[in-house]
Amino acid sequence: MLETDRIQLHKLVEEALPELDMMIGWTESCDPLQTTPVFIRDAKLISKLTLGPFCSQNLAGYLVKPPALESVPKDAKPIGICVKGCDSRSLVALIQEKFISRDRVRIFGIPCRGTIDWRKVAQRVGLSDVKSATVEDDFLVIDASGTTHRIGLEDVLARKCLGCRYPNPIIQDVLVGQVATPRSSSLETTYRDVDALDNKPIEERLAFWQSELDRCIRCYACRNACPLCVCQDKCIAETREPRWLTQRVGLPEKFLFHFIHAMHLAGRCTGCGECERVCPMDIPVTLIKEKLNKIMEEMLGYSAGLDPDGVPPLLTFNPGETEI
């Protein structure tokens, strides 16, 4: 089925490429568990495009991070991009905030059945000598060091995928493959990890974040990977004027940095999980934002990246709100 979808994707991109400035998608990498982004202008490369459970990267960030769109003339042809359900929410959020205009992108929507978290695989089978990896029904089948491992999908899917309510793109120009069934339809499932931590006493919560954030090396990969962290080198985590943070390496600095990322994403974060995926220190960074996403849903009935005409709730107000 994946093969059929891939062929359909190739065909659709082939038809569209003459009208596009560029096509952004995924391609196989040296690691069977991960794909890598590919930027296509030459039709010969189209056959390299792939999709499926190893396409975990959210490509939406490329549209807004330098040297992306700014180097492309305003009258250039649109850019084609492959998006999963979660990635499409990033696009919606970026369109909302006018970082990209809808007509500058040609969206190839890909219904998603979950992406594989290579770290979880590594914990189970190790990473040495993985020859091939495929998903068969509800199993990940890995051929490593001459042995075949069958691992239940639930055990190796990315955390965000297990609670995913929107596996199908919110916006698209064309849909590739069959519509997928959401793994979650309730706040309880989506925010189970948030609730699990919330149910612990406050001292344990503090201890949890102290030990997690203590590993943070403030490399800012989480910020750089976030498609909605658009300030780049104007980020207040790095500016000297105003000077919010120093180069000191204590826990207060680490907490404050994560508060900055979280508060700047409050009501904007779509829960795409990129911040957590890229963290070299294995810190559950998205969990911090998930809590704020839950607050936004419960307090203001808002979930980011679902409505291109919506306004992020902290960038607007409602005088009638008296309960706050």
Partner: peptide, 13 residues
């Protein structure tokens, strides 16, 4: 809105 969001968020951390 911003204050209330923060107020609900602090205990999580």
């Amino acid at each position: 809105r911003r204050m209330e969001a923060l107020k609900l968020f602090l205990p999580f951390m």
